[in-house]
Design a protein around this nucleic acid. Sequence first.
DNA 1: TTATCTGCAAACGCTTTGCATCGGA
DNA 2: TCCGATGCAAAGCGTTTGCAGATAA
Lengths: 155, 155
Amino acid sequence: MSTLRERADGPAEIARAFRAAGLRYTPQRHAVLEFLAKRHRHATADEILAAINHGDPRASRATVYNSLHALLDAGLVREVGGGAAARYDANLHRHHHFVCDRCGALEDIDWFDPPLTAARKALAGRQVTGCDMVFRGVCGSCLKSGSRAGKGERA
Amino acid sequence: MSTLRERADGPAEIARAFRAAGLRYTPQRHAVLEFLAKRHRHATADEILAAINHGDPRASRATVYNSLHALLDAGLVREVGGGAAARYDANLHRHHHFVCDRCGALEDIDWFDPPLTAARKALAGRQVTGCDMVFRGVCGSCLKSGSRAGKGERA
DNA sequence: TTATCTGCAAACGCTTTGCATCGGA
DNA sequence: TCCGATGCAAAGCGTTTGCAGATAA
């Protein structure tokens, strides 16, 4: 499991990631992956679209979705269910998620091993390749402020 | 935490659940909760709508969503991210989920305690009220058949 | 050269909303 | 009686698709 976010800060690394994954390397795809890898995590497709079209390569909405699907298939990007719109995350560092029921923030939680031993019995007869743990509750700043913060992304 | 599915098979129990939750009790809402509690789990809003309009009380699409939200707020129903459309589950028995990457089946996994001790450090500073564990992999029948089963619900 | 990606726009599916009416408490 | 639920239809939003033209390998 590579840690793209740590090592792929240079354009060359991103190009290499595409080739390693057997994906065609286009400026648009580069922009999508670079945006996710270097700048923002938990970005929605729309945020990616806006950011890219603010910059140089310019990609259409369809192309952004297209690229995201290619990257998902290749395992370079992860989809997080979060809320209404899907969020994408290039950080392949394993981590869990926490969703604040009050302000909707989606935060990363440091990785710890899921209880696969305890799960073994319950999961018998299946081939398990992954486990997403999503915790829910009230995040730190909502606890502090005591009120509802702006609904949105804060991770 | 009540186990509606086990005890609320009678209409009276369902009415009671509404009153206990401080919700207005209408025929439509009764039908939604009854459908989820007695018959089908992991049902989409559309499935609920179709089932209800096949029966007696008849509810509009908006009313189904409306009822579901009321039930969600009251904690009588759980939303499961599953796929494109949200799925709803009245079984308040705690359980985890398993999603088959091959056929898309959504299965229940017997409850076991999440590793909250291990998580404590990572979750510090937050108030945690819940934990959804979603396992991914290949389900039993796909393993057997070796090919892709029909995409859909099989839990 | 050729398979495949891009871009545009329109379609699609799920969910929400506005508003007049109905009905449970 | 009165607040809130219902029903209809239309809008909203995120996502996908079809097809002609462009482009990476």
